[in-house]
């Protein structure tokens, strides 16, 4: 399968995520869109890893080229989980203080 397919797919997902961040005001949905972007990147990483692995296998049947990308994906997931736990805690706090999950409401922080 050509690598472009995967690239286009991931780009589409990423752009949808970007659009979501731009258009939605609900902090939780915005947050979810960020997760979507992260996942798009993850998928792309795996795709590239497999691409390079495929070419490396031709030279060396026991090659593990590309494994670092998958481990990187694994770390991204860990970071995402950490980010979500903190982020959601912040959203809950924000909701408690302002009774809203509207991100524009956070503008008040600067006042």
């Amino acid at each position: 399968m050509p690598i472009q397919y995967y690239i286009y797919l991931c780009l589409a997902l990423f752009s949808i995520g970007v659009t979501g961040v731009l258009t939605r005001r609900n902090a939780i949905v915005v947050f979810m869109c960020i997760e979507l972007m992260l996942n798009a990147v993850n998928l792309l990483l795996v795709a590239f890893s497999k691409m390079f692995h495929g070419y490396a296998l031709v030279q060396n049947a026991t090659s593990t080229t590309g494994i670092d990308a998958q481990i990187f994906v694994f770390f991204i997931m860990v970071v995402a989980a950490a980010e979500v736990s903190v982020g959601l805690a912040i959203i809950v706090m924000m909701y408690r203080n302002t009774h809203s999950v509207d991100i524009n409401f956070l503008n008040r922080l600067k006042n």
Partner: peptide, 18 residues
């Protein structure tokens, strides 16, 4: 700021978390 104008909370609702 005017774009916030439609987010008016009923009085006391911020405290009401129950």
């Amino acid at each position: 700021m005017e774009q916030h104008s439609h987010i008016t909370l009923p009085k006391g609702s911020i405290e009401k978390t129950t």
